[in-house]
Design a protein around this nucleic acid. Structure first.
Lengths: 221, 221
DNA sequence: CAACCCCTTACAGATATCTGTAAGGGGTTG
DNA sequence: CAACCCCTTACAGATATCTGTAAGGGGTTG
C-alpha cells in the first residue's frame, strides 16, 4: 500500500472525514492533510527534495477564497505545479464536479490517475480508487458514466470564446471586432451569428439569454 | 449537552467528518446520521412518536439527486416537514451557501437556530454552534458577515419573476403577456423594460445576457 | 476534375432590445 | 391642497438580434 499520502481539501469536515476513513480502512503509514493548495504544494516540494516524496495526492478541484493570498487557486493549478517537480506522483481528484466532459479532460490533459465524485458513496469509492491506483490502474467514479448521455455536446474553443464574451455583455458586433483585433479567425459577425444559432439548436435555447443561462447553470462557461 | 442528535448530509465524507469530530469533542449520547432527507424525516418522526425525540437536527441544504425517488429534496423541505411534527426541535444548517441574504432568510423564514458555512473551519464552527444553540442562543458563521457588503442588492419577487422568465428564453413582450394572463401586476412591457434597465445599473450589466449570466453565477436565480 | 460538403462571409428583413421622453395616478409631506 | 416623489404606462427612435438567402473558398470523394 502507499506509504505516504497527502490530502488537499479546503472543507474541514470533508477533510476530517477522508482522514478518519482512510486511517480505519487502509494501512497508510503517513497520512497528511492541507487546507490550501499552496501549502500542499510546498509540502510535496519539501518532501521530494528531502528524498521522502509523497506517493499519492488526493485533491479537491475548488478551493474557497479567503483573506490569504494564493498563488495556486484550484486543484488543476496544484496538479500542474506538482507534476513539474514530481511527474511520477499518483493523483486522485475528489470533487463534486459531475460533468463528464470536464472529468474526462482531467484524465486527458492533467493525466490524473483517479476521479471520485463527492456523494453518498465517496468514501467507499475513494478506498476503491486508492487500491486501483496503487495497482497502476485508473479509477473513474461510476456516477460520471451514468450521466454521460446528458452532455454529449462538446463545445469547441471558438464557441467558448464567443459564449464567454456574450456572458461579459459584449454584442456580437463587438465580439467580431475583438476577434479581428486579436487576429482570431473566423471573425465575421455573420459567422458568430451562425455559430450561436447552431448552439440554440444544440441546447434547445430560444435566444442568447436563455443559452447563457443554460450553460452557466451547467458550469460549461 | 444534547443527548440525541441527527445529522442529515448526503456527502459520505462530510458526514463521516462531522460524526467523528462531534464524537471526539462533545459528549453527545446518541449521534445518528442519514444521507437522505426522507430517511432523516422518518427517523425524526418515529423517534418523536416513540417519546424519545431528537433534540437537534444538523442538516445540509443541497442533496444530490440519484435514482431514488424523493419527496423531500432539500434541506429547507426537510426543515419545514420536521417543524410540523416537532416545532421545538433545534436546527443547525451546515452548507456551502454563503449568500448573506439567503442565509438570513433561513433564520427569518425557517426559524433555524444556527448556520455554519462549510469551509476551512466548519468543524470548529459547528462545535461552537452546538454549544450556543444548546444555551438557547443562535449562531451565525463569521464567514457570512464578512461578505455581507457584497450582496446588498435585494431582489424583489417581481424582479425574480422577470429574471426567471428571461432565463427561460421568453421575450419581454411574452413576459408581459404571461403576467397579464396570470393577473400579475404590473404587467406592461414598458415597466418590465424599466425594471430590467434598473437591474443593469444595480449589477453593472450592459445587457440582458450579461445580467442573467451574473445572477446565475451568483445563484440568485 | 467534377460533384459534393462544410465553413465563412455579406446582406436583407422582421423582431427584439434598450434608452429617452412624456403623461397620469397614488401616496406623502409641508 | 399644492408640491413632490415614485411607479406605471405608452410611444418613438436607434441598435441589436435572429433567420434566411446566396456567393465563394477549401477540402474530400468518386
Amino acid at each position: 500500500m502507499f506509504k505516504k499520502v497527502l490530502i488537499a481539501e479546503d472543507f474541514q469536515d470533508t477533510n476530517a472525514g477522508i482522514v478518519s476513513a482512510l486511517s480505519n480502512k487502509l494501512n497508510i503509514h503517513e497520512l497528511q492533510e492541507e487546507l490550501y493548495c499552496d501549502k500542499a504544494f510546498n509540502r510535496i516540494k519539501v518532501a521530494h527534495s528531502n528524498g521522502v516524496p509523497f506517493e499519492l495526492l488526493i485533491t479537491d478541484l475548488l478551493f474557497k477564497e479567503n483573506h490569504v493570498d494564493r498563488k495556486l487557486t484550484s486543484g488543476v493549478d496544484l496538479i500542474k505545479a506538482v507534476k513539474t517537480i514530481q511527474p511520477s506522483i499518483k493523483i486522485i481528484v475528489n470533487s463534486m464536479e459531475d460533468n463528464p466532459s470536464k472529468v474526462k479532460s482531467l484524465f486527458k490533459e492533467q493525466n490524473i490517475d483517479g476521479y471520485v465524485c463527492k456523494g453518498r458513496h465517496s468514501l467507499n469509492e475513494l478506498t476503491a480508487a486508492i487500491l486501483e491506483v496503487y495497482q497502476d490502474n485508473t479509477y473513474l467514479s461510476p456516477q460520471i458514466n451514468m450521466t454521460s448521455n446528458q452532455n454529449v455536446i462538446e463545445l469547441e474553443e471558438f464557441d467558448i470564446s464567443i459564449l464567454t464574451e456574450l456572458a461579459n455583455g459584449l454584442s456580437k458586433k463587438e465580439i467580431a471586432e475583438k476577434f479581428k483585433q486579436n487576429n482570431m479567425t473566423p471573425n465575421s459577425e455573420s459567422t458568430i451569428d451562425k455559430r450561436v444559432s447552431k448552439l440554440f439548436d444544440d441546447f434547445g435555447a430560444k435566444n442568447t439569454t436563455q443559452l447563457i443561462a443554460i450553460l452557466t447553470k451547467d458550469g460549461l462557461i
